[in-house]
Write a protein that binds this DNA or RNA. Structure first.
Lengths: 111, 111
DNA sequence: AAAATTTATCGTAATATTGCAATAAAAAAA
DNA sequence: TTTTTTTATTGCAATATTACGATAAATTTT
């Protein structure tokens, strides 16, 4: 077979994995970084900014949109993208919770 | 073609994407959660804990090891795994830095 | 030493992701 | 209206990931 037995895992586990998956490509990190940098949300600029063809950028935008991290708004004949604050903060909290759940142990078996 | 033009992105971008990739599967999240829960690092228990065959678990462990998130230590004829504190804290910091770099704007274009 | 236990690796099949050319869709500009 | 501009979608090829049976490797137990 192959690929994802997501049904066998908890919702929390799938949730975290999906957040990670949205960030698991340098192009998507680059897109988010650029959106953060230019504050006012740009769009076609991303194609110039990235070493990828327009359809590829569009596809990455689609995935980020699907994950909820960004939102787009029609503005003339172009589309303005920006970070979705609410989701961003939510994911930040989820990841902080996960990483914070590990307390350093003095008595681990791996010395 | 298809798949990863990682050479065209910055080291920081690839770094972040790789951290995310290591977390981008519910099984690996489950493994990490279990390692956190049982503190003293278990190993064959993971196969019982997860809805996956032994080779599949072994493969996920390999990826987590490759990412640096966990380390294994031979103990008798079994292997004891646990979180690598140093890397864990480093990744936590990297992710915090990324999520923290976004400052909520009152003047975004997407209202 | 032989059998049992435990984990890793190999080989292979199924599926998912990535990338882009071609093209469609929608709005602005001419 | 026709052309241009901008983004999305389709179709397809290349690659990566996931999963597991079979098997190897290493150690412990008998």
């Amino acid at each position: 077979m192959g690929a994802s037995k997501s049904a066998h895992f908890t919702e929390t586990q799938n949730n975290l994995a999906n957040i990670a998956k949205a960030l698991a490509h340098p192009a998507r990190i680059a897109i988010l970084e650029h959106l953060i940098k230019v504050n006012a949300c740009v769009c076609g600029d991303l194609v110039d900014e990235l070493p990828l063809a327009q359809p590829t950028v569009s596809q990455h935008l689609k995935e980020l949109k699907l994950a909820g991290l960004i939102k787009g708004e029609i503005e003339g004949n172009s589309i303005c993208y920006c970070i979705d604050e609410t989701v961003w903060l939510k994911y930040q909290t989820v990841l902080q919770g996960f990483f914070g759940s590990y307390q350093i142990q003095k008595t681990g078996c791996c010395s």
